[in-house]
Amino acid sequence: MLGKGIIKGLAETARNFFGSFVSERRLTTVPYPDARQPLAENTRQFPFLVYDGDDWEQGLRCVACQICEKECPPQCIYIVKSKDKKPDYKGQMQFYPAVFDIDLAVCMSCQICVEVCPFESIKMDTEFELSTADRFGGLLFHKKQLAKPNAHYHRIHPTDAAASDAVLAAEKAKQEAKARAAAEAKAKAAAPAPVAPPPSAS
């Protein structure tokens, strides 16, 4: 009979109308600035630079290798390599970025810079409320704005941060083992004497 489907549809909307007053499932919007949905742990928005320790300039992990600059698909990263060197977390002398800019207006949050970085120094932040009134420089983030402590990384992505720390610790241990082995080899060469075998690299 004509009108059956229409009445069925009307019953459906009526159910949703009255259901919205009693059931969470039928009123799914979150009134945004007042209430927020929790972010998933994997959420990625824009990149930031990780630093260890307290001094953001000294502890910056980035060594200005410029791989991310080359790999960035929309080419929003701009790096100028330093003339001098400073020690990194392993104590090795490394270059550092004299300038490290990311134009967040161009960045498309693809995370490729994070994946290609061999030094665990660039990671994805979860901050997204970045609107600014300055349309020319407001979203061009400089090194200082980008640098955030490792603790911040641990706070937003605990699992990834732990994995990243483990990688770095392993690198460091390998490096130390190598240095020790080198030192021992040197010592052995200088004065051959029986010593205990070096501990295996972890």
Partner: peptide, 13 residues
């Protein structure tokens, strides 16, 4: 508001 409620949202508030 009524349309919003039928569509599982709040409507203007």
């Amino acid at each position: 508001k009524g349309l919003g409620r039928m569509q599982n949202r709040h409507g203007p508030n």
